[in-house]
C-alpha cells in the first residue's frame, strides 16, 4: 500500500472511507472544542469510536493530521487503551464482566462455554459478523455478579442459560427479520 499523499501525516485529510458522513462532523466538533490541541487525542478517538463503532485506519490518519500528532502515536494510543477497538464490531455486542466478584460467581465458566458456542475468543467477532464477544475488566456492577452488557444494556445475575438464550435470540431473531429490517440503520431501534 503506497502512501496516498505526499505528506501524509500532515496533509489535509480527504474525508474518508465509508460515506461523506455526518459522523465526521461530530469528530470535527470534538477536535474544535479542544482547539485542535494534541492533548485532545484520546477524547477525539472516543468520538470516532462513538460515531463509527471502531477506529478505522483512515480515520486515525484523519485525526492525526488534524491534531498534528504522529501517526505512530495515534496507533500507540489506540492500542494501549483497551476501550478502543480497531475492528468493526458485529451487529450485536455481548460484553461479559471478568471482575473479581463475577469471577467468584462463575464468570470464567460462562465465558468458556460462550466462546465454545460462538467459536470465537473474547475480543473477536463471529465469522458472520453477527456477534462480538468482549470482556470487561469490571463493570462496577459487582452487586449483580456475574454481570454482562448486551447491546448496551447491563444485565445482572447471569447464568449460562440466560446468556445462551440471549445469544440464540439474536441469531434467530435476525434470521427471521433479515429482510424486513434490512433498511434500518440500527436494528435495535427498529420497532
Amino acid at each position: 500500500m503506497p502512501p496516498a499523499t505526499a505528506s501524509p501525516a500532515l496533509s489535509s485529510p480527504s474525508p474518508s472511507p465509508a460515506a461523506p458522513d455526518k459522523r465526521l462532523r461530530i469528530i470535527d466538533r470534538t477536535m474544535r472544542l479542544h482547539g485542535y490541541a494534541s492533548h485532545a487525542l484520546i477524547e477525539t478517538l472516543h468520538a470516532v469510536q462513538e460515531a463509527f463503532g471502531y477506529l478505522d485506519p483512515d480515520l486515525m490518519r484523519y485525526v492525526a493530521g488534524r491534531l498534528k500528532v504522529p501517526l505512530s502515536r495515534v496507533y500507540a494510543v489506540a492500542t494501549f487503551y483497551h476501550f478502543f477497538t480497531l475492528k468493526p464490531p458485529g451487529e450485536h455486542t455481548c460484553v461479559l464482566c471478568k471482575g473479581t466478584a463475577c469471577h467468584i460467581g462463575g464468570a470464567a465458566e460462562i465465558l468458556r462455554q460462550v466462546e465454545a458456542m460462538l467459536g470465537v475468543h473474547a475480543g473477536e467477532t463471529t465469522a458472520d459478523k453477527k456477534i462480538s464477544l468482549m470482556i470487561a475488566r469490571c463493570l462496577g456492577s459487582c452487586g449483580l455478579a456475574p454481570a454482562g452488557v448486551f447491546d448496551g444494556t447491563i444485565v445482572g445475575n447471569l447464568t449460562l442459560d440466560t446468556v445462551v438464550n440471549k445469544l440464540q435470540e439474536w441469531r434467530s431473531h435476525d434470521a427471521d427479520h433479515r429482510k424486513s429490517a434490512g433498511d434500518c440503520e440500527n436494528r435495535d431501534r427498529c420497532p
Binding site: 504522529p70 505512530s72 502515536r73 496507533y75 500507540a76 492500542t79 494501549f80
Partner: peptide, 10 residues
C-alpha cells in the same frame, strides 16, 4: 524529529 516509531499495545 520524524516520530516514525512508537509502541503498540501494552
Amino acid at each position: 524529529g520524524a516520530h516514525t516509531w512508537d509502541i503498540a499495545g501494552r
